[in-house]
Simulated scan of single mutants.
Amino acid sequence: MPVRSGAMAIQQFPVSGSVRSRSGLALVMDGTLRIGPLIPIPQLLREMTVDPIDVMREAGIDPALFEDPENTISFTALGQVLSLCVARSGCPHFGLLVGRQGGISSLGIVGLLSQHSPDVRTALRNFVLHLHLHDRGAVPTLEVQNETAMLGYTIYQKNVASTDQIYDGAMAIAFNLMKTLCGAKWQPSEVLFCHAEPVDREPYRAFFKVPLRFDAERTALVFPATWLDQPMQGVNPQLRRILEAEIETLNVLSDGDFVSQLRRILQSLIVAGCPSVDQTALLLAMHRRTLNRRLNALGITFKQLLDETRFEIAQQLLRDTRMPMVDIAVSLNYASTSAFTRAFRRWSGATPAAWRAALQHD
C-alpha cells in the first residue's frame, strides 16, 4: 500500500477509530488497537533527531493521535508508522525500543485487571480472554504443556507492514508484564520470534538476557509453568470487582458481531492447537447445539468459519515468517503437509509455496 501524505491523508485516519464507553474507555473496533503501548514513539523519534510530526503526516495520520492512550489506530496505519520510523531513524529494532517502555500500565483496564487477579494463572487468563478490548488485530495465547508455559502473540490482521516490529514490541511488553506479575526474579527460559533473525541480535540479548530463537513456529515467551501458581501481591479485591463489571460492560458493547467474536476465539484456539466446536462453545459459555443453531441462523457452519480462520493464519505465517510448510501444517492442526497444501489450494487457487513465491516477486 503506498504511503500517503498531506491533509487529505490525515483525514484517512481520524484521531480515534472507536467510540467510547460512559467511563471514557475506547471500544476497539476490528483491525485496530489502543494507542497506549505506542505512546513512546514520538519521544523515541525526537531522541533520534527525527521529527515525529513529519513521520505521522507521511504515514497519513494526525500527530494528535498520540496525545491520549485511549485513542485507537488501525493495524494498517501502525505498520506504516513503524516502517517509516525504522527508515527515518535507521534503527532496525525500533519496535523493540517501543515495547521496552511498555508494560502492564500501557494495557489499560485489561492490564489493571490482570494486576489485581489472585494469582499469575488467573492474571494471564484475564489477559488472554480480554485483550480483544485493547487489540483487535492479533490474539494472545497461553499454552501449558507438561512443565512448560508459553505466552504467545499472533497477528491475524491482513496486509500489515512491519509485523516484525510489532512482534518485537509485543514480546518486550509481555516480558515487562510478566516481571510485574511475578517479580524481578522471573525469567523466561527462551524467547521465540516467528520472523527472520535480525542482522544485529545484541539489542535483543541485552534486553531479554535469555536464549533467543528466530524463524520459530510462533512468537512467544517460554517459561516454567510453576510460575502460574504464584499468588499475586498487593491485590485489591474490591477494585477487581469494579474492573470486572466495567469489562463486562465493554464486552457487551463491543461484541455485537457474533461472527467477529467467534473468529477471535478461533484464532486463539487454532494457535493453541485445540480449535474444536466444544472448546469454542465452552469459551462462549453456551452448549454446542446453541452455537450451531446460531451459526445456522446466519447461514454459516462451524467448519466454514474454521477453514476461513485457518486460511487467514496460514497467509500470515507464509507472509511474515520463513517457517517450512511442514511446520505451518502442524501449527494449523493438519495431519500432513499434503493435507494443508490441498486445503490452501482450495482457498486461494495456488499452492502455499507458489503463493509465498508470488509475494517475494511483488
Rank of each mutant, 00 (worst) to 15 (best):
L318D: 07
G152K: 00
S276L: 12
Y156D: 05
E67N: 13
I313N: 14
Q238D: 11
M8T: 14
N251S: 05
N159K: 14
N126M: 02
Q157W: 11
I242R: 07
K185F: 00
F75N: 09
I10K: 15
M150N: 04
S23V: 02
R356Q: 15
T351L: 09
D278F: 08
E58C: 07
E202N: 11
D62A: 11
L113E: 05
L97D: 13
M48G: 03
L112N: 07
L305I: 12
S117C: 01
R288A: 01
V235M: 01
L306H: 03
V271Y: 03
I35S: 08
R125M: 07
A343M: 12
R46S: 11
L228C: 01
F214K: 06
P198V: 13
Y167C: 04
L317V: 09
P140T: 03
I173Q: 03
T309I: 09
Q279E: 14
T154G: 09
L305N: 04
S5A: 10
A9F: 09
S105P: 00
R241A: 10
G111W: 00
G183W: 02
A174R: 06
F214E: 06
A149S: 10
L107E: 09
G234N: 04
S83K: 10
L78R: 08
I35L: 10
R34D: 05
G79P: 04
Q187K: 12
S83I: 03
S254W: 01
L262W: 05
D168S: 15
S348F: 06
I166K: 02
L65M: 10
G95T: 06
R241C: 02
R322D: 12
L38F: 13
Q115R: 14
E47A: 13
H195C: 06
N251G: 03
S189E: 15
S336K: 02
P324A: 11
K158V: 05
M8C: 06
P52G: 12
S348T: 15
V86E: 13
L228V: 04
E248L: 06
L282F: 13
A245P: 00
E190F: 06
V55H: 02
A272V: 02
L262Q: 11
N236L: 00
L253I: 08
S338P: 00
R288E: 10
G79R: 03
F223T: 02
L33E: 13
V139T: 15
A172L: 11
T122F: 00
